[in-house]
Amino acid sequence: MGVIRAKNIDKFLGGVKILDNVNLNVKQGSIYGLIGPNAAGKTTLIKTLVDIYKPDAGEVLIDKEPISDNKRIKSRLGYVSDFQYLYPTFKVKEIVEFYKGAYLLWNDERYSQLKKLFKLDENKKIKYLSKGMKTQLAILLNLSIMPNVLILDEPTSGLDPVIKKKVLNLIVDEVSTNETTVLISSHNLGELEQICDHIGIIHEGRVLLEESVDNLKSSVRKIQVAFKVEIPEEIKSNEHILKIESVGKIHQIIVRDNLDDVIENIKKYNPILLETIDMSLEEIFIHKMGGEGYVFEDIAL
């Protein structure tokens, strides 16, 4: 249960193709980070996954069933959007009542626990809540419905660092306790790196790759090396080297796929320093995109 699948999704908005044959597969119980530059189609894809937008081609399946107009699936689907479109004239407690009535598996105990964590004033009208408070409310509501699938579109934007940390912990707890499947989009790759086990990269409406974070991290590594003399030409010309950055005699070499071969090759030239450094998701993203032939400067993270 809790699998998200997008099959050959096309979506046009205002005559422009925003999603182009998108395929996406999120396994049960995993936290899938959807990343991509601005206007890549992340929000459109998410809105298509949660049945706000109907795809022009292809279909979205959750738990192997089409999402479109599917009450059963939607009763276990949590969605936190990038902007919270909650009824502005409702008080917090009224919107809670609305969710409670709509979702059969609403959990009062869970709601009470989360309410203490977020410290929301139940008598306040939604229109008087700040952006961050609205996001907290949306997270609180969508975790209280006991979701099988949780789809979050930039859920931490507008949250202060303390609350941000709480939210990320809650998501991890949710997955470990209830085996919830989570798809989360964010521009903050540092955050995603902390919690995601899978990553999907979307650019210009197409999913470029889907991979586990472990595979992704092992596929691109950084080697820090120093030689007494200049870096040998043979090393520079190695086909697995993506990039070399040099500061004085210290060189940082980004290697794709075949790390062991590159290290063996370097060792032949007796380096005075040789160490392997883990790369951040952000660095991998940039280099991976570079490897796919995309221009770094165009990709605003």
Binding site: V50, D51, I52, D69, K71, L77, S81, Y85, A102, Y103
Partner: peptide, 9 residues
């Protein structure tokens, strides 16, 4: 948008 993601047809 909120309504369309909730369990209502």
């Amino acid at each position: 948008e909120v309504l369309s993601t909730m369990p209502f047809t």
